[in-house]
Design a binder for these strands. Structure first.
Lengths: 171, 171
DNA sequence: CATCTAATATTAGATGTCTATCTTTAATGC
DNA sequence: GCATTAAAGATAGACATCTAATATTAGATG
């Protein structure tokens, strides 16, 4: 059945996929934040905590790489996390440039509380999707991500400066 | 075939989908911004322009609804767009509350320049995906979006205050 | 018609993100 | 070994987004 077409508002098929993807991303973010806030952890802190649970003691640079975020973003998040007592930042073995982040007991303990929340979000999002549908979805998303990365690299190669993302996931 | 398991870094299957979706959203955003910046239009301005090309003269409230953004967000974007001469804001027919936005010639003309850019992004992203794969992808995303919306509503019904999204699409 | 309530817009303040630039420390090359 | 280059981090400034609070106007009600 064709989509009903309202009088003077033609569909924009070319933007539909981007819009759906952005809405889905926003849904995930909000659902997770909703849960994190009950533990007074922000989304940004969650990102870095999750990485540190896997590999403690990474440098700021390594953390920003793994998070796919810039260093200033990592910097401010890590400063805040140190203030909150989730991590300790310090140099190691004579290198005074690298600032490594180490989980405190508090930061470590958050893992048991927070990880189940991410699971919950995932389960909520996946309701009604078969294993196969999920697998197909992951594959299709991976293809798009790779395509868009190539697009960005191509643009960079043409000398275009890539602007900030400003996380607008709306629309 | 099982996924190979690296020494001490277990996979987190529960977060993989969210991460993929966020990365895809970021890819779309960056690819579009890359193109918009050559015309000195920001992502936020694009969002409202696109809506106004469909329905000129909407109020700020109507615009924020359609964009899935809050009123303050729409407000600042629209103020800026008026400064840039893309739109004119004014009241209509005796209602002094509603601020309606009307495209100027300049705002209208941007359409022909900008819309093809969105098409380009879409084409780049869809490379290698069959029509059917795209359709399946849209369906699966729609299911997830609905699931996550329900999750949010459920939480709201339980009295939880929903935090801002802060567009982090990374990770 | 005067007042209360609802709708709409605005302002203020927080956060997360980015780019660009500056500072400090390490590594490299004569 | 000193000077240059590279790496890592820190800082400044811009922007999009949110919530919360405030102001203004419209509509409803006694």
């Amino acid at each position: 059945m064709k989509e009903k077409q309202s009088s003077h508002v033609p569909v924009q098929p070319d933007e539909r996929m981007a819009r759906l993807v952005r809405l889905a991303a926003r849904g995930f973010n909000r659902a997770l934040q909703l849960r994190l806030q009950t533990e007074n952890v922000t989304f940004g802190q969650w990102i870095f905590l999750r990485i540190l649970w896997q590999e403690d003691g990474l440098s700021q640079r390594e953390l920003s790489d793994r998070a796919h975020l810039t260093e200033p973003t990592a910097h401010t998040a890590l400063i805040k996390m140190e203030e909150l007592g989730f991590i300790e930042r310090r140099n190691v073995e004579g290198n005074k440039r690298r600032q490594h982040a180490f989980l405190t007991r508090k930061g470590l303990e958050l893992r048991d509380v927070l990880e189940p929340l991410a699971l919950e979000v995932n389960d909520a999002a996946m309701a009604g999707l078969s294993k196969k549908a999920q697998e197909d979805l992951r594959n299709a998303l991976s293809v798009m991500i790779r395509n868009l990365e190539n697009d960005e690299h191509d643009a960079a190669a043409r000398g275009v400066r890539v602007p900030p993302t400003k996380g607008n996931t709306a629309n």
